[in-house]
């Protein structure tokens, strides 16, 4: 399909969504329960002018970055060890299964008791770590032993083997792990904020809007969370294009 045709379909899809939204708002007929797209847009723009807006947004982004860095460092380090040693992988397996299958909310409620204020960071790490870890393990398993053997037979230096054989084999797995971790982690952090109520944070603002029955503000914050999530994904795609060469 031509890309111009695709763009038209995407625009039409958004238009249908907006029309359905407007119809729903008209049917319900109450701004307090279901504000229309226009009212929400106005509320969103107003948010930008709010005095704490930047602080709120950056607090959440900062929590995202901190938990992302912790998850990547742990996930990559432990993933490499587990990828190379089956015994360690077997040891990690139950932990990872627990982390992956426990509902986020259960962790949030526990974390509220244990950490209170840094709950969101803890939740971010807990959701992102297993995804990155699993991908790194899969990446290492994916390294072609025949290429490793070739390098060993030709007595290529160890550092060169790591840089030219291991890293390029693992990179696509690492990038896909990171991109799904960021998508899931971002949403989990906001859930964490809703319940832990840090002084500044998108999750906290969502919760406050809900308590005040300020539905258009609630949706406006949601839109900002979605836009930021999309922005992060875009950034990761860009990094992916630069780092992972696709010739395979």
């Amino acid at each position: 399909m031509r890309s111009s045709t695709k763009n038209i379909i995407v625009i039409a899809s958004v238009a249908v969504l907006l029309v359905l939204w407007e119809v729903a708002a008209l049917c319900i007929g109450s701004e307090n329960v279901m504000p229309g797209p226009w009212a929400t847009l106005v509320a969103t723009i107003k948010l930008f002018g709010q005095k704490d807006f930047v602080l709120v947004v950056f607090s959440t982004i900062l929590r995202g970055i901190v938990s992302f860095v912790i998850a990547v460092v742990l996930g990559v380090a432990l993933g490499i060890v587990a990828g190379l040693h089956e015994g360690f992988d077997a040891f990690m397996k139950p932990w990872v299964v627990v982390m992956r299958s426990t509902p986020v909310v259960a962790f949030v409620l526990l974390a509220l008791i244990w950490f209170s204020r840094s709950t969101a960071v803890f939740i971010g790490v807990l959701t992102m770590f297993p995804i990155i870890f699993t991908n790194i393990v899969a990446g290492i398993r994916n390294v072609d032993v025949k290429l490793i053997e070739m390098a060993r037979f030709y007595k290529v230096r160890r550092r060169s083997v790591i840089r030219n054989v291991y890293v390029p084999s693992i990179a696509p797995f690492m990038v896909s792990g990171i991109s799904s971790a960021v998508g899931i982690g971002w949403r989990a952090i906001i859930v964490g904020e809703v319940l832990s109520q840090p002084r500044y944070g998108i999750g906290g603002s969502l919760q406050l809007a809900q308590m005040q029955m300020n539905v258009e503000v609630l949706i406006a914050w949601t839109i900002i969370a979605v836009l930021l999530g999309a922005l992060f994904e875009k950034i990761i795609r860009l990094i992916e294009n630069v780092t992972v060469k696709r010739h395979i």
Partner: peptide, 26 residues
């Protein structure tokens, strides 16, 4: 020693030239 294996065993993310350079570097 040099080896010629049953399969070419070339690094898929490197060009023909880079593949040869990879074993020559040392």
């Amino acid at each position: 020693f040099s080896y010629i294996f049953q399969e070419p065993r070339l690094l898929p993310w490197k060009t023909v030239r880079q593949n040869i350079e990879f074993v020559l570097e040392k």
